[in-house]
Design a binder for these strands. Structure first.
Lengths: 358, 358
DNA sequence: TTGTACGCGTTATCAG
DNA sequence: CTGATAACGCGTACAA
């Protein structure tokens, strides 16, 4: 049931406002301060101002102070485009997210942006989710802005794009996987390790007949392969698997779970390759009158916000996406500062958080 | 219970790779094609190429075709920084999100980015969440990039920043509220209308003693004021309210709900000013052994993903954030194309989605 | 340590 | 409709 907007939809809401109202200062757009003006004020040449800002150690103490003062007095900020044009490098960092719909990725972007912001870099977003056809032009368009670095939530899959990025010779962090030959650097975790934790947990709890629910591509597929191999190694039986092409929301998980349960028999525990599927599965299990973990055990992957809150709490593999993004940002900064980072790749631990569902 | 990473954390996962491996083509970074080269190839002057690209109607058919061919042949793409330096305007759009942690905002950003991408613009993210102290420098830094336009999920609150943005004279869309005097344009909805829907719904269902749960600032405060005024108008009783400073997750909602219920008595229905609080409240109600809507009714605001999935389904006010963002993007494009948009502000309808919780 | 000369790649301006 | 010329604001390269 949906009730429409009231007739007075144009009513004005109160709006919070802070600070004093400033008188319009006559001429609207003040002309921008240029480096030359700062130089005049400080009694030096423009290039000295530039150096005082970018390589302070090359300028004498006395002048540097005079220049700093002139800068704050005028409110000078260098024109990023002029700088980028001349130097061939900008203060932007490209972030390629497969989708903005997943909190995992936006959390990572958040962490990365946070770190970069403090160093004066800003993030431009590329959304690569939709198709390979859109991906390549998007990458080129963004890379035309000569970003100082790039962060990718995932692994760039098209070899054509990989080599394009590699040739740019800028710091690049791939993530969310454990690639053996990253384009440049990696802030990742091992999907296989995560699945191993799941399998060992299920085995230890005595579950023998297992089910799998996942996406039929990308990480979903990696996790499924690992799941099947490891189950075989441990002598566990795969009683049913169901792969779906795309997961847009919790409803997909409900549907998939029901189909899986109805099509296979005797499944004791289901591993859901992501939390959206897992949460849907738990809700549907409840609807179907199945108790957890008595009738069915469910384990997810991702530890999203709700995993802990859906009764009786979902057991899931957890990765700290924010921390991963922040680490990526730090790797980038280290590299930009001229140092080589400690390691070209940093593997984050995965942990299994056991809750009521298993 | 948390189980650590297995010892073999460095195991390499399989990685999907698509496409053929390309031989390293000797000299690593091919020199960029410049407009001059395209001009030579087409037998015209550089400026004509520029015009063929940006104002095709100013160039004769014949030359335009020759130029287009030369462009595709060379793979020419103009240097965004040179363009921005000369023209004073870039192909980036600034997006200020109060936080990346809320799906509402990232959805809006997603919709906006989608529309802008198709027109060759890219989004740079600014995260304004943390503090006023950080906000002003951030805005200046991003605006130094001379974005073509700006999108704000919310209303810029500091008057100092409002007038700064206003003076830039670029298309700016504020959102998520119904401001009477937007900086420029508005893609919003009425919080008061949303609360009105809630109140009328609760009144119609016969609830008389109401509770409120919300954030003590920003929109939370606006919604609380509206709630209290409208309740008074309808002769309903406010039996208890609880405002919290910040809502980071569902757990905050649980805690707040419990405190509210324990501190007040006889509450029949609780309005939660956002979905995170609402979902927490529902989960906690269940934990406390309260049935919905028998013992307690709960209504949220936001219609997040999970609202429909938490049993017995949460009644909530719904706004289509993705559509709102997309509309903002379109308003921006319209304005950039030189037209004035139909209306400087577009108010989106809010609807009440009734589910099992009330 | 500081300054001079010049060019990064494009587009505004104005003349044809 | 087209082209020559001159910036846009800064930083590199080199000389002092």
């Amino acid at each position: 049931m949906t009730i429409g907007s009231p007739p007075f939809a144009a009513t004005l809401d109160p709006v919070l406002r802070v600070g004093t109202r400033i008188e319009q200062t006559g001429a609207s757009s003040k002309k921008r301060v240029r480096i030359e003006e700062v130089a005049r004020l400080a009694g030096v040449s423009p290039i000295t101002v530039s150096r005082a800002l970018h390589s302070p150690h090359m300028v004498s103490e006395a002048r540097r102070l005079r220049i700093d003062e002139a800068v704050t007095q005028t409110g000078y900020a260098s024109n990023p485009h002029a700088r980028a044009l001349k130097s061939g490098r900008s203060n932007i960092v490209a972030a390629f997210l497969s989708t903005l719909a997943s909190q995992q990725y936006t959390q990572a972007a958040d962490g990365c942006a946070r770190v970069l912001e403090d160093a004066g870099y800003h993030m431009v977003m590329g959304r690569t989710f939709y198709s390979y056809a859109r991906e390549t032009p998007l990458i080129h368009a963004i890379m035309d802005m000569r970003p100082a670095a790039a962060f990718i939530t995932g692994v760039m899959e098209l070899e054509e794009n990989r080599s394009f990025l590699r040739n740019l010779k800028i710091p690049i962090v791939e993530s969310w996987a454990n690639a053996s030959d990253p384009i440049d650097m990696l802030a990742g975790f091992s999907n296989v390790d995560g699945v191993t934790l799941v399998i060992d947990h299920l085995a230890a709890r005595g579950y023998r007949r297992l089910g799998f629910l996942g996406r039929n591509s990308g990480r979903g597929q990696i996790r499924q392969n690992a799941f099947e191999q490891l189950a075989a190694q441990r002598g566990l039986e795969i009683a049913g698997t169901l792969s779906v092409p795309n997961v847009a929301g919790i409803a997909d998980g409900r549907r998939a779970f029901r189909r899986l349960i109805e099509s296979a028999s005797g499944i004791e525990a289901v591993f859901c390759a992501n939390d959206l599927l897992g949460i849907g599965a738990m809700l549907e299990a409840r609807t179907m009158g199945l108790t957890m973990p008595g009738d069915i055990a469910i384990v997810g992957f991702g530890d999203s916000d709700v995993a802990s809150e859906v009764p009786p709490g979902m057991t899931t593999v957890s990765v700290d996406a924010y921390a991963l993004g922040a680490a990526a940002g730090e790797m980038i900064l280290t590299r930009l500062s001229g140092d080589l980072p400690d390691a070209p790749s940093r593997i984050f631990p995965v942990t299994l958080i056991q809750r009521g569902s298993s």
